[in-house]
């Protein structure tokens, strides 16, 4: 089984090791996970591609249906659909609000937390609580806070937007972006807190010797020092954006008003399952996966250059 306890003729052992590895029991140990990945990741990925190139719909159980190859027609249909374009535009709006807000707030709060201050543990816990709570639960409160008769509009009085946040076509998507920022921020704060430990102390000292202000040393030492964490934050925000479903489904009542907060995944659900066009929804899913992978690659290259 392995080279320590079972001595074998060296030539044969080497050939066997080359074939299955020195400890083939590892294949047995990882088999359930490998099968799991094959069944719920690799195969569905292939199936998504296959469906996206065929005319596919849900038929009654047992019925044999013809599923002809249709080439790229599902893709052209997706790309020419104004609703899809609107959904992608909405994600751009989401990212324009979410990414800068997340990076700025989590870096500021992580910096503030990175010191001997009273109630440190309390702060860290309170920032992390929204992250561990179900979206469905906190959406319930946000609905209550941000509807037209909610507390936020009560406090703002005449300054409250009309129509109110979640039913305003200009504010629905930014509201979702703010909600998601709030929910995920604790996670990013901890990410930055870890990254701050890796910024060499000497850099702050030499900045101080050179007479740099606090702001200056934050900008020239801290910000470049945590760049790898920023890469991860941007990447994860993009993934979150591509993933949005629960928030537009519940917070803005199915991506309203008039599609102003529809997300691609919500569209996939509506087209694929509600309207029985899984072929078109699969094409949209495949495009999104390609998009996420490309962006992950670019992001890596761009932010981790030095």
């Amino acid at each position: 089984m392995n080279q320590v306890t079972v001595p074998k003729p060296p030539g044969r052992a080497r050939r066997l090791a080359a074939l299955v590895g020195r400890q083939p029991v590892g294949m047995v140990f990882s088999a359930p996970y490998a099968v799991f990945l094959a069944v719920v990741f690799a195969y569905p990925l292939g199936l998504a591609v296959w469906i996206s190139f065929h005319r596919y719909f849900f038929a009654a159980p047992g019925a044999t249906v013809n599923r002809p190859f249709v080439g790229l027609s599902n893709y052209t249909e997706v790309l020419s659909d104004p609703a899809v374009r609107q959904a992608f535009g909405n994600i751009v709006v989401f990212l324009l609000v979410n990414v800068p807000l997340t990076v700025l707030l989590s870096l500021v709060l992580a910096t503030a937390l990175n010191a001997a201050i009273p109630f440190r543990r309390f702060f860290r816990i309170s920032y992390y609580v929204p992250y561990v709570t179900a979206s469905v639960a906190v959406v319930g409160v946000w609905l209550f806070l941000f509807n037209s008769t909610g507390l936020v509009d009560h406090v703002l009085g005449p300054l409250a937007p009309k129509p109110s946040w979640l039913v305003n076509s200009h504010l629905a998507m930014p509201s979702i972006a703010v909600f998601v920022t709030w929910k995920q921020l604790g996670f990013y704060i901890l990410l930055y807190l870890a990254a701050l430990q890796n910024v060499p102390k000497e850099l702050y000292e030499s900045a101080a010797v050179d007479g740099a202000s606090r702001w200056r040393s934050f900008w020239s030492v801290t910000v470049p020092g945590v760049r790898p964490a920023t890469t991860l934050v941007v990447l994860l925000s993009l993934v979150t954006g591509a993933n949005l479903f629960t928030e537009p489904y519940l917070l803005t009542g199915g991506g309203g008003p008039a599609g102003a907060s529809t997300s691609p995944v919500l569209l996939m659900y509506q087209q694929g399952i509600e309207q029985n066009h899984p072929d078109i929804a699969s094409a949209l899913g495949v495009l999104l996966i390609i998009g996420v992978l490309i962006i992950a690659l670019i992001n890596r290259r761009f932010l981790e250059r030095d």
Partner: peptide, 17 residues
């Protein structure tokens, strides 16, 4: 790779399967 590709994007094929 699994951790980069959002699960939600595989919803349709998983639903089919």
């Amino acid at each position: 790779l699994v951790q980069i590709v959002p699960f939600q994007l595989l919803t349709i094929p998983l639903y089919v399967l």
